[in-house]
């Protein structure tokens, strides 16, 4: 057995905490998750079915809404498309925690946790993966919405729309992952996920302008991260990058940061 001669690969400097290893570990794990998504592309498409139904059915159902005085767009579908994009983000990222539970039950997570890698890398790779998957879905959705008459993001909007979607997706998958770590069970996670996504959607200007909402709903929509997602995406479609757009982007950035930090800390503390 010639292989026996191999000397120990002198494992490493224990420097799992350093930025270099953080990036390397995150990349390695992200690569794995992307490979799995690449092999099962069908799930990415499945995630698009519901948004498309909303786009088509709601677009028809509320068609005449745009005739109301004060409605911001000429055509309802133009108004609806950014809302449905944010909806895709909400639905897509709420599944990220379910995948975490799958890894927990298969023992895959345990194997990661005994490896000398940082907890941050484990969480970050999951969030980035969820974010990138959603970005791909939105990419396809923007194309279909354009065919349905929703128009196309203008100018730099084509770039900023991905940034907005990525921030929102990472933020919501962080919440989903944190909930998964707290609940540890798939059923309540799915129930809570469903319970949260629809109100988040309705308390945002995704389907109707905020001006059309009763006062209390307007209040709620102000503290809803999805609101800022919808506003940012809508600004991208209009090609208007005013201060309101930048405020929305900043809120999304802060939202992503806070939820990611919480997810990482919940994950790191889970050793009781």
């Amino acid at each position: 057995m010639e292989q026996k001669i191999i000397t120990a690969p002198n494992p490493v400097a224990v420097s799992g905490a350093s930025i270099k290893w953080l990036v390397a570990d995150t990349t390695a794990l992200l690569g794995k998750y992307l490979l799995m998504t690449w092999r099962m592309p069908i799930w990415t498409f499945f995630g698009l079915i519901q948004p498309l139904l909303w786009l088509i059915i709601f677009g028809q159902l509320f068609k005449s809404l745009s005739r109301l005085p004060g409605f911001p767009e000429a055509d309802y579908i133009q108004f609806l498309a950014p809302g449905v994009i944010v909806m895709t983000v909400l639905f897509g990222s709420s599944w990220s925690g379910v995948n975490l539970l799958r890894d927990l039950t298969f023992g895959i997570m345990e194997k990661l946790l005994v490896a000398p890698i940082s907890r941050t890398a484990i969480v970050m790779s999951r969030l980035l993966h969820a974010g990138l998957t959603v970005v791909i879905q939105v990419f396809l959705l923007v194309g279909v919405a354009a065919l349905l008459g929703a128009g196309f993001p203008r100018g730099a909007g084509l770039f900023w729309i991905w940034v907005a979607v990525l921030l929102l997706a990472i933020g919501f998958s962080a919440i989903s992952n944190a909930l998964a770590m707290i609940l540890k069970k798939e059923e309540p996670l799915v129930v809570i996920g469903n319970m949260l996504t629809l109100p988040l959607l309705f308390f945002s200007p995704a389907l109707v302008p905020t001006d059309f909402m009763p006062g209390w709903m307007q209040m709620l929509s102000k503290i809803n991260p999805a609101t800022y997602g919808v506003e940012a995406v809508r600004a991208c479609y209009r090609g208007v990058f005013d201060s309101f757009f930048w405020i929305s982007m900043a809120v999304l950035g802060v939202f992503m940061f806070i939820s990611t930090v919480s997810a990482v800390s919940i994950f790191s503390q889970d050793r009781s």
Binding site: F106, K111, P116
Partner: peptide, 14 residues
Amino acid sequence: RMSFGYVGQQSGVD
């Protein structure tokens, strides 16, 4: 963590 290998109760391979 660097010093040991671990085979858990559940299979940890994907």
